[in-house]
Design a protein around this nucleic acid. Structure first.
Lengths: 194, 194
DNA sequence: ACTAACATACCGACTGGTTGGTATTTTAAT
DNA sequence: ATTAAAATACCAACCAGTCGGTATGTTAGT
């Protein structure tokens, strides 16, 4: 295991644990044990727990962005949006899908860890802006006379997705996410029908 | 301060703190200090921290239900739904609105505190079932030929609302909740137009 | 009416274990 | 030999929860 792997392993383990129990309840000792790393190594790679949290959040965010990169090949804006929905639906079905670190950190840390909060905000804004662009182009193309605001619809979608993950946790049933996504698809269909 | 007040004061303080920082990060000492109560009193009224969390969640849930009770006077089912949306919109605008304990506990405790998770699940289910009834009646009345499933729409609404609160935390902007609610209203309008 | 026995409400010092983080040492690579 | 990486041992602060005690009734027997 070279040094990059070791740091990544720490982040992987921490992410997995925090997607279950949140940031505060996940201890450094636990992360180290799960990553097969000693505490000394942990604090060699990260100044403190918060620093690690920040790097994890940033990594999560940029990985998410990277995932969406492949969708930009599609020429039709509405198909790009549905492509995004397809992708999210697929991911949410996989066994190792455990939720979104941004959502968890937002709930838990927004009042106590301002820098982490800021990372979440920026990540959310980036997602919304990307989706907004496609929705706006799709509106020009398919529903130029409609009055809905693409940015608000994009924000609304992210809210729906995040909330569906909250409900999925409470009910221990990931299918809620799928159902919410298909409800949103219906919403889109109605917005864009000529 | 009589004994009922004292217990309520503990629950009030704990709820306020936990809506900010979550369950784990809120300490018993902090709750006691904020409530103006000693630790001895805390453990006199509650077996342990979790017991208090459970009582708090149940209180939050039944208070929410009670709030909705007044809406049942409306005879038209679709107007009942819009009445609910009005009410939630109003509450989310008030200064002391800080979010939903169910959403926070779900995210943080669903894997570690099964009994609290169950309370959240039951509370969510109750809300969804109530809304489902009105949506179903409204469907019979206004859109009998539509194919949407009232239960899924109800679930979808709760997801949207919960997720909007997550985003509101990340952005420190409560208006997101209002916008999401009005987007959902638009969704409803499209579903129920003849 | 007096009192002994009991119950409730409350206090705050204390404890044992855990936490994030540090200091020191050892190992491995160049 | 030098330095980066990793292991070990440790610490002060903090945590939930305990415990012995006090103050204030309440009940019941005489």
């Amino acid at each position: 295991m070279d040094k990059v792997d070791k740091k990544e392993k720490i982040l992987d383990s921490a992410q997995c644990l925090m997607l279950d129990k949140g940031y505060v309840a996940t201890t450094v000792d636990e992360i180290c044990e799960s990553a097969g790393v000693t505490k000394g190594s942990f604090f060699y790679y990260f100044k403190d727990k918060e620093e690690m949290g920040k790097e994890m959040a940033q990594r999560f965010s940029s990985r998410g962005k990277q995932c969406c990169e492949g969708l930009k090949g599609e020429a039709d804006p509405l198909k790009r949006v549905h492509g995004l929905l397809d992708m999210i639906t697929e991911i949410s079905k996989t066994a190792d899908f455990k939720g979104c670190i941004m959502g968890i950190f937002s709930q838990e840390l927004s009042e106590t860890h301002p820098e982490i909060r800021k990372i979440c905000e920026t990540s959310f804004d980036g997602f919304i802006s990307n989706l907004e662009k496609d929705l706006a182009q799709a509106k020009d193309k398919y529903a130029p006379k409609s009055s809905f605001k693409p940015r608000e619809v994009a924000e609304y979608f992210l809210a729906t997705f995040q909330g569906a993950m909250v409900l999925a946790r409470a009910k221990k049933d990931k299918k809620i996410v799928e159902r919410a996504l298909s409800q949103f698809r219906e919403h889109l269909r109605m917005l864009y029908k000529k």
